[in-house]
Design a protein around this nucleic acid. Structure first.
Length: 1008
RNA sequence: GGGCGGUUAGCUCAGCGGUAGAGCACUACAUUGACAUUGUAGGGGUCACAGGUUCGAUCCCUGUACCGCCCACCA
C-alpha cells in the first residue's frame, strides 16, 4: 500500500542512485537507432547550483528523458568549465580571507596553479552532486572538464586546445599584435569586449585651454545657422573638453574637423598641453580628422591614442604617437627616464624633428614626475586642480555673477569589468587575437541556410547583428589559471647574431613584428624543432624550463654554437576559447577523430542555453565547430529565459534576492521545482519565480500520488501492458482513453517544438482536471457495483491510464513517477525495469471515440449545471434533491439510463428520471435540449432563483443579439468562410432554443 | 543612436483573425471513504492608446505612450 504521500527527501536520492547503478543514463549504444545528443553548458567547476542552472538543466533533462523514451541512442554529455578569471578570483579571495599571508604573488605561478587544482578537486564535485539532486540524467561516466593537466594522462583537452590554437595560427586566423585592449586593473589582465559592461555613471566634463605655441593668436569666430556672426574674439588658445583629464598627459595631438572654419587658420600649428612643469610643457600639433563633431563641445578633440578607442583610430590614421600613461594596476607610470628628458624627446617628435617607432614610444613615460605612481583617479584630481590653479580652465559666470571654472555635470558611460567591477582602462598591449570576422562568415551562413536553427527564431537577429559586426577577439589573458598559450618566443638578436638570410630587425618593425620569432606549436619539442629549423645549425635551441648543461648567457654572440633560449608565452587563453570546442572536445577530439562517439554524437541535436550567453559561447562554438569539424556543432539552439525573482529583478547573491534551488528541492522536492521550470518556460520570456508556484506543483504531485493510491485501493493498479480500445464497452472508459490519447499527442508535439509549458500544461490539465476531477469520480459507482465485467474493464482501464500518465509525466517529474511505477508494480505482474526506460506512448486514432466523448461531456455538463444551481440558490450541499429530466431526447434519455446513478451521486440528486411534464414545485434549468427540474422551490429563496435566471437570460440575449447582427450583415454571410457562417447559425439556433427554455423557466418560476 | 521584446483578471503570465484563458490571490460553501498539499461554486478584463486593413481585430499593419533588455556612443 502506498504511503499517505510521497516523501521526496527520503526517496529521490535513492531512486537516483538506482538509476545510476543500473546505467540508465548511458546511451543505449543501439547504433541502428537515431542518435540524440546534448552537451551540457558546463557550469563553473567551483560553482554552486543557482536558479539559472536549475532551469537550463531541467529543460535539457526533459528533452533527454523524452528522447530516451522514444528509443533513441541518447547522450547527455556532462562536464564543467575551468572558468579562468572566476576561479582564480575565488582562490585568491580565499587566500586573502584565510588570514595567512599567502597570495598569488607569494606563492608563485606553479604553486598557485597547484592550489587551484586542489580547490577544484575539493569543490569540483559539488555542482555535479547538485545537478544529480535535480534529477539530471547525464552520463556521468563521461564527465569532462575544459582543462586538463599538461603531460598527464588526462591531457586530451590540452591537446585539443593546442591543436586549435596552432592550426588557427598557421592559417593566419590567430595573430599577435599590439592593440588597444580592455584592461582590467584589478585582475591585471586584458579582457574581451564581451566582458566589459558599460554603465552610465555621474561624471564631469572639464573644459581647458590649450595655449598656442609661442603665444600665437587667431581670430575665433562663431556663427549661427544663418551665417550671422555671434561671437568674434582674439584667442591664444584652443578650448578642449574632456571627461578624463588625467589622459591629457598622453595627448599626441588636437584634432578638429577639416570643415571647421573656426580652427582652419591654426591647423598645422602647435599647441601646449596645459599641465606638467612649465619649463617642459609638451607641444602637440593641431590636425584635422573626420572624427571630431564640430557641433559638439568646442569642436576640438584631444587625441590620446593609448587610452581611448576612438582616439586610437585617429592616432593610427594620423600617425600620432600613442603615449601609454599607466601601469597594469591603473596607476600612473613611474618607470623610465625622468619627465624632463622624455618630454624633450616628445617635443622633437611633435615638431617633426625626430622620427619614432612603436617601441620607442612605448618606452617613453610622459607622466610628469609629480604625478608618477598616483592612482589614475588621484591623478585626475591633481591635474584638474593644477590646471585650474594656473588659470587655464575655461571660465564662466554663474547665476550669482561669480566667475568659476566650467565643469559640466554629465552622465557618462563608463566601462566596468564584469567580474572585477572596476573601471576598465583601454591599454596598449601585446595580445593574441582571433580573426573572428573570417570565422564568423561560415557561422553566419550556417544559420542563414538553416543548418542551425534558433528557437525561438527571433534570436537569429541578435546573432546576426553581433556576428556581422564582430571585432577581433582578444584571447590572451594575463592570468595563471587556464590553458597556457602554446607559443614560445625566441630572443631578439642583435644584428650580428642574426642567422644568415634572416632579418629580425626588419621583422620587428613590421606589423607582424613577432612573426618570425614566435614558434607556435602543439608541444615544446615541436617548438624547439621549429626554432632549430629557423635559426639553423649554428644555433643551439632550448627552453627556459630545460636549460642544457654548459649553457651560459655569455655564449650568445660569442663562439659558436650560439644559444637560443625560447620562453613560453606566460599568458593563458580566454576560458571561452576552450569552451568553444566543447561539442567536439568532449567527444575525444582530436584523438578520436573518426571514432564512434564523435561520429555518433557530433553534431549535437540541440544546444539549450540562455540568451545572455549567445555571444560568449554559442557564437564561438559555431565558429570553431564549423572551422574544425566542417559541420555545425548543433542543429537547434533553444534559447530559454532568464530566471528572475518575483519582482522581475535578476537574482544575485549581492542583492540577496536569490532563491536557492537546493532549498526549494529540500522543501518541495525536485519534481516540483522541475515542473515549475517547465511550466514557466514559455518562449521568449523571463521566468519570474515564486515559491508559491513551486508549492502549487508540489501539490500537483501529491494529487497524482493520491490518485494512484485510490487506484491501488480499488485494485486498478494491475499493470498488464497494452490496452485495446476496441474491447472497451463503458462510455466512461472509452472516453478517458480518448482524452488520454489527445493529451499524449499534445504533449508530444509540444516537446518536439520546445514548448515545455505547453507539454507541462497538457499533462497537468489531464491529470488533475480530467482524470482526477471527473474520471475517478465517474467510475466509483462502477467499481462499487455489481457488474463484474464492467468493474474488471474499469479497473483495467484506470490502471492502464494511470501507467500512461506516469510515462507522459516522467520527463517532467521523474522521481514521483518512477516511485509510483515501482510501487504500483508490486500489486500486479512484476515490472521488468525502470519507468525512465519505458517507451514513450504514441496512441493511434483507435483511441478516439467521439460518441463516448459527447456522451461524457453531456454527463459532465449536467452535473456541473446542477452543482451551479445548488450553490447559487443555497441548497445545502448534503441534501439530496428530487430531480427529473423533462422532455429529454431519446439519446439523452438513454444516456440518463446509463449514467443516472453516477449523476445522482455527483450532483446529490434522487429519483432522477425522464418525465413529460415539469413537476410542481420545481425550479428548472436547461441542459442541452431538455429541462432539468429540481424540486427545491420550497426550500429556496425564489427571488434568488429568479435573479439567477434573469442574469443568465440577459447574458444569453446579448450573445444571441450579437450573432443575429453578425448574420444580418450581408458582407459577413457572403465573405466569411462557409464553416464560420454555419457555426454561427448553429450557435444562434442553439442560443435561441436555450433562451426560449430559460424564459419558460422564468415564467414558471413567476407562478410559484 | 541601432536593435529586440513587452503592455490581456488584484498578481504572475498563456493565448489568438470568428464564444477572452490558467495558476495564485479573493468570496461563499463543504469535512471519515484517494487527496485540506482537498473538493464544489462564484466574483473579477474597453486585451495600453490612436489610426488602418478586414465581413469581422485582443490577434495583422502603421503610429504614439510607457516599461524592460541587448548593442553602440560625443571628446
Amino acid at each position: 500500500m502506498l504511503d499517505q504521500r510521497f516523501d521526496p527527501a527520503a526517496s529521490e536520492a535513492q531512486i537516483y542512485q538506482r538509476w545510476e547503478e543500473a546505467d540508465c543514463f548511458k546511451p543505449s549504444g543501439d547504433t541502428s537507432a537515431e542518435a540524440y545528443s546534448i552537451v551540457i553548458p558546463p557550469p563553473n567547476v567551483t560553482g554552486v547550483l543557482h536558479m539559472g542552472h536549475a532551469l537550463n538543466n531541467t529543460l535539457q533533462d526533459i528533452l533527454i528523458r523524452y528522447h530516451r523514451m522514444t528509443g533513441k541512442n541518447v547522450l547527455w554529455q556532462p562536464g564543467t568549465d575551468h572558468a579562468g578569471i572566476a576561479t582564480q578570483m575565488v582562490v585568491e579571495r580565499q587566500m586573502a580571507e584565510s588570514g595567512s599571508n599567502e597570495s598569488r604573488a607569494s606563492l608563485g605561478r606553479e604553486a598557485f596553479v597547484e592550489r587551484v587544482w586542489e580547490w577544484k578537486e575539493e569543490s569540483g564535485g559539488q555542482i555535479i552532486g547538485q545537478l544529480k539532486r535535480l534529477g539530471a540524467s547525464c552520463d556521468w561516466s563521461r564527465t569532462a572538464f575544459t582543462m586538463g593537466e599538461d603531460g598527464s594522462d588526462d591531457d586530451q583537452m590540452v591537446r585539443a586546445v593546442r591543436k586549435v590554437f596552432v592550426d588557427l595560427y598557421n592559417d593566419g586566423l590567430i595573430y599577435r599584435a599590439k592593440r588597444l585592449v580592455n584592461w582590467d586593473p584589478h585582475f591585471q589582465t586584458a579582457i574581451s569586449d564581451l566582458e566589459v559592461e558599460n554603465k552610465e555613471v555621474a561624471g564631469h566634463m572639464w573644459h581647458f585651454k590649450y595655449p598656442l605655441a609661442g603665444g600665437a593668436t587667431y581670430t575665433y569666430v562663431e556663427k549661427d545657422e544663418d551665417g550671422n556672426v555671434t561671437l568674434e574674439e582674439e584667442r591664444d588658445y584652443i578650448s578642449i573638453a574632456t571627461t578624463r583629464p588625467e589622459t591629457m598627459l598622453g595627448d599626441g595631438a588636437v584634432a578638429v574637423h577639416p570643415s571647421d572654419e573656426r580652427y582652419a587658420s591654426i591647423v598645422g600649428k602647435l599647441c601646449e598641453i596645459p599641465v606638467g612643469p612649465k619649463e617642459h610643457r609638451r607641444l602637440i600639433p593641431i590636425i584635422t580628422d573626420e572624427y571630431p563633431d564640430p557641433d559638439f563641445g568646442s569642436g576640438a578633440v584631444k587625441i590620446t591614442g593609448a587610452h581611448d578607442f576612438n582616439d586610437y583610430q585617429v592616432a593610427k590614421r594620423g600617425n600620432i604617437p600613442m603615449y601609454a600613461l599607466m601601469d597594469e594596476r591603473g596607476a600612473m607610470r613611474s618607470d623610465g627616464a625622468p619627465y624632463a628628458e622624455v618630454a624633450e624627446t616628445a617635443g622633437r617628435i611633435a615638431r617633426g624633428q625626430e622620427s619614432f617607432d612603436e617601441a620607442t614610444i612605448t618606452a617613453m613615460n610622459l607622466v610628469p614626475d609629480e604625478y608618477r605612481g598616483l592612482d589614475r583617479f588621484e591623478a585626475r584630481k591633481q591635474v584638474v586642480a593644477d590646471i585650474t590653479a594656473e588659470g587655464l580652465a575655461v571660465m564662466v559666470t554663474d547665476e550669482e555673477g561669480n566667475v568659476i571654472p566650467l565643469v559640466e555635470d554629465k552622465k557618462v558611460m563608463q566601462p566596468f569589468g564584469d567580474r572585477s567591477g572596476v573601471v576598465i582602462e583601454p591599454m596598449l598591449t601585446d595580445q593574441w587575437f582571433v580573426d573572428a570576422e573570417t570565422l564568423a562568415k561560415p557561422a553566419i551562413e550556417a544559420v542563414k541556410t538553416g543548418k542551425t536553427r534558433f528557437v525561438p527564431e527571433n534570436w537569429e537577429k541578435t546573432y546576426f547583428n553581433w556576428m556581422e559586426n564582430i571585432q577581433p577577439w582578444c584571447v590572451s589573458r594575463q592570468l595563471w589559471w587556464g590553458h597556457r598559450i602554446p607559443a614560445w618566443f625566441g630572443p631578439t638578436l642583435r644584428d650580428d647574431q642574426v642567422p644568415s638570410g634572416k632579418t629580425p630587425a626588419a621583422d620587428r618593425l613590421a606589423d607582424d613584428q613577432y612573426a618570425k620569432t614566435i614558434f607556435c606549436a602543439e608541444s615544446l619539442a615541436e617548438a624547439i624543432a621549429q626554432a632549430q629549423r629557423y635559426y639553423g645549425d649554428d644555433f643551439h635551441v632550448f627552453c627556459d624550463d630545460s636549460k642544457p648543461s654548459g649553457y651560459s648567457t655569455s655564449h650568445i654572440g660569442g663562439t659558436k654554437p650560439h644559444w637560443v633560449n625560447l620562453s613560453q608565452d606566460p599568458d593563458v587563453l580566454d576560458t571561452w576559447f576552450s569552451s568553444g570546442l566543447w561539442p567536439f572536445s568532449t567527444q575525444g577530439w582530436p584523438d578520436a577523430k573518426g571514432n564512434e562517439d564523435l561520429k555518433t554524437f557530433f553534431p549535437g541535436s540541440v544546444l539549450v542555453t540562455a540568451f545572455d550567453i549567445i555571444f560568449f559561447w554559442v557564437a564561438r562554438m559555431m565558429m570553431q565547430g564549423i572551422h574544425f569539424m566542417g559541420e555545425v556543432p548543433f542543429k537547434d539552439v533553444y534559447i530559454h529565459a532568464l530566471v528572475l525573482d518575483e519582482k522581475g529583478q535578476k537574482m544575485s547573491k549581492s542583492k540577496g534576492n536569490a532563491i536557492d534551488p537546493l532549498e526549494l528541492i529540500d522543501e518541495y522536492g525536485a519534481d516540483a521545482l522541475r515542473f515549475t521550470m517547465a511550466a514557466m518556460a514559455a518562449q521568449g520570456r523571463n521566468v519570474r519565480l515564486s515559491k508559491q508556484r513551486v508549492e502549487g506543483y508540489r501539490n500537483f504531485s501529491t494529487k497524482l500520488w493520491n490518485a494512484a493510491r485510490f487506484c491501488q485501493m480499488n485494485e486498478c493498479a494491475n499493470w498488464d501492458g497494452a490496452l485495446d480500445p476496441a474491447t472497451l464497452t463503458q462510455p466512461v472508459n472509452q472516453w478517458i482513453v480518448g482524452e488520454l490519447a489527445k493529451t499524449g499527442a499534445e504533449a508530444t508535439t509540444a516537446i518536439e517544438e520546445y514548448r515545455f509549458d505547453g507539454a507541462a500544461g497538457a499533462a497537468y490539465r489531464f491529470i488533475w482536471n480530467i482524470f482526477c476531477d471527473w474520471y475517478l469520480e465517474l467510475i466509483k459507482p462502477l467499481l462499487n457495483g455489481e457488474d463484474e465485467a464492467a468493474k474488471a474493464e474499469t479497473r483495467r482501464t484506470a490502471g492502464w491510464v494511470l501507467d500512461e500518465i506516469l510515462k507522459l509525466l516522467h520527463p517532467f517529474m521523474p522521481f514521483v513517477t518512477e516511485a509510483l511505477w515501482e510501487q504500483l508494480g508490486e500489486d500486479g505482474p512484476k515490472r521488468e525495469g525502470f519507468l525512465m526506460l519505458e517507451a514513450w506512448p504514441s496512441y493511434g486514432d483507435a483511441f478516439g471515440n467521439d460518441a463516448a466523448a459527447e456522451e461524457m461531456d453531456w454527463v459532465i455538463d449536467l452535473v456541473t449545471e446542477v452543482r451551479s444551481v445548488r450553490a447559487d440558490l443555497g441548497v445545502s450541499p448534503g441534501s439530496k434533491v428530487p430531480a427529473s429530466l423533462v422532455n429529454a431526447s431519446e439519446t439523452n434519455a438513454a444516456r440518463l439510463g446509463r449514467h443516472g446513478e453516477v449523476i445522482s451521486r455527483l450532483a446529490r440528486l434522487e429519483g432522477l428520471g425522464v418525465v413529460e411534464e415539469t413537476p410542481a414545485g420545481a425550479v428548472t434549468t436547461v441542459v442541452d435540449e431538455a429541462l432539468l427540474a429540481l424540486k427545491i422551490a420550497d426550500i429556496i429563496d425564489i427571488g434568488e432563483a429568479k435573479a439567477r435566471l434573469t442574469k443568465e437570460i440577459a447574458s444569453l440575449e446579448k450573445d444571441v443579439t450579437g450573432i443575429e447582427k453578425k448574420l444580418g450583415n450581408e458582407n459577413f454571410v457572403s465573405r466569411a468562410p462557409a464553416d464560420v457562417v454555419e457555426e454561427n447559425r448553429q450557435r444562434l439556433a442553439d442560443g435561441k432554443e436555450r433562451l426560449e427554455k430559460l424564459k419558460g423557466a422564468e415564467a414558471r418560476l413567476a407562478q410559484l
